[in-house]
């Protein structure tokens, strides 16, 4: 996936302006930045939800040349908030992720893909429960399971860890990492910069709709840049054992 000069306007305001973003198979790219920086809008533009100017290429073809069903076999999108109008069970929700493959040879993997996705996200235990009866964090993991079950070469995840506890944050990002290791390209919006530093190959720092810096987290996450972008003093310390950057706000 390669996006060049992408701009998005919402309600007459430019929320993303001429952003370049690319991700290759096997790579995890973290989109970070303060609230309102345009992370979700950029992700929506890249997934074809919001009209944008500029060029988005998926698998070397322009995004808008795809039919929805073709695109659904190439990329899966995890929305920021999981909603469901009717009380489907968790098992049924995860199985919805297989819909794009119906009537294709890959449909033979349906059972396997659903079982694997639920196991990875530790949701197998509530397969029979109605989705609306789950807690926010459980719903978020089920939504991720649905996206994983889709088995696409490109994953776009909008804040997959927002509602999760510490253990499940790690679980979700290591699952994502493992997917990348098997050749999937991943773009993930994250708020926790230390998580981004630990799991992403590259980080893209957005502020006010523009890319401020892009590259490996260790070189991008500098106290100067982050302090300026977040308008709060930030310290970046190397982890004493692993050396990955730890990003902490300076506190009195």
């Amino acid at each position: 996936m390669k996006a060049t000069g992408v701009s998005v306007s919402l309600g007459g305001r430019t929320v993303v302006s001429s952003v370049d973003l690319h991700v290759s198979p096997g790579e995890v790219v973290a989109l970070v930045g303060p609230n309102g920086a345009g992370k979700s809008s950029l992700l929506a533009a890249v997934s074809g939800d919001l009209p944008s100017s500029g060029e988005v290429m998926v698998d070397e073809r322009p995004l808008d040349s795809y039919k929805p069903i073709e695109l659904a076999r190439l990329r899966a999108v995890l929305p920021q908030k999981a909603a469901l109008s009717f009380p489907f069970t968790v098992g049924e929700v995860v199985r919805m992720g297989r819909a794009p493959w119906s009537g294709r040879p890959e449909a033979a993997e349906d059972e396997d893909a659903v079982a694997e996705a639920m196991e990875l996200t530790e949701t197998t235990g509530f397969a029979a429960r109605p989705f609306p009866a789950l807690s926010g964090g459980e719903q978020a993991r089920v939504a991720l399971a649905r996206v994983l079950a889709q088995r696409t070469p490109l994953l776009l995840l909008d804040e997959p860890t927002a509602a999760l506890d510490l253990r499940h944050q790690e679980l979700v990002l290591s699952v994502t990492r493992a997917r990348a290791a098997s050749g999937t390209a991943v773009i993930v919006v994250l708020h926790d910069l230390s998580l981004a530093a630990a799991y992403a190959d590259r980080a893209c720092v957005l502020a006010a709709g523009r890319v401020r810096s892009e590259g490996p987290p260790s070189s991008v996450f500098t106290p100067e840049l982050l302090s300026e972008v977040y308008q709060h003093d930030v310290e970046v310390l190397p982890h004493p054992r692993t050396g990955t950057p730890l990003v902490v706000p300076r506190r009195p």
Binding site: R73, V93, A99, P100
Partner: peptide, 21 residues
């Protein structure tokens, strides 16, 4: 009917799953 099931996820997620909403 199958596409209506997907629509329960919302308009965008249904489109992400290949439904021409």
């Amino acid at each position: 009917s199958r596409r209506l099931d997907l629509l329960a996820l919302g308009e965008r997620p249904a489109r992400h799953l290949g439904v021409d909403t």
